[in-house]
Amino acid sequence: MKIELKWTLILVVLIVICSIITGVVYGALEDKIAENNFETKDNIDITSLLPEADSLKDLDIDIPEDSKIRSVKGAYSNDELKGYLIKVDSEGAYSTISIAIAITNEGKISGIEILSQNETEGLGDKIADDEFTSRFKDKTAKTPLTLVNDETSANDEVQGISGATISAQAVVDGVNAAIEFFNTHLEGGGN
């Protein structure tokens, strides 16, 4: 009984030591982890999507209730409006896909990023890869984009992913919603 008690105490001490060491390691790596910020990717780095801008500001714009648009922000560089960051939610095959779309003042898509999705592993989740999202780069935000299977021939076409048509179409739909919003509410300086 005595030896058991002794080792129970040792166990408790061990747990405390392990917790403290983990805490210390966490403290040391905290900044680095925060930099990578997962899960809540909502605070995305605007520079990666719109290189000319360096900060985001809320805009005073009404967002239609029934649209896919979730939020619209202005992208600024030293108080000069460079473009917009529009976040949309689009229904994919199995999940809601959140997309951030950056559109420049001149009406060009400068980049998109998939913020969250839960599509089929290995198929639908390819929409989050750079390979797919980069296909939206430099498209003109005038007319809706269409998804095509082969190589793109026109500027308003985006090449899809074989085996993930629904997921890819959902992304295109989301981007189109952002384009429509841009054309109806924002074009020409917005606020």
Partner: peptide
Amino acid sequence: SIMYLIFQA
């Protein structure tokens, strides 16, 4: 836990 923290960082 330590490994997971390293992965995250």
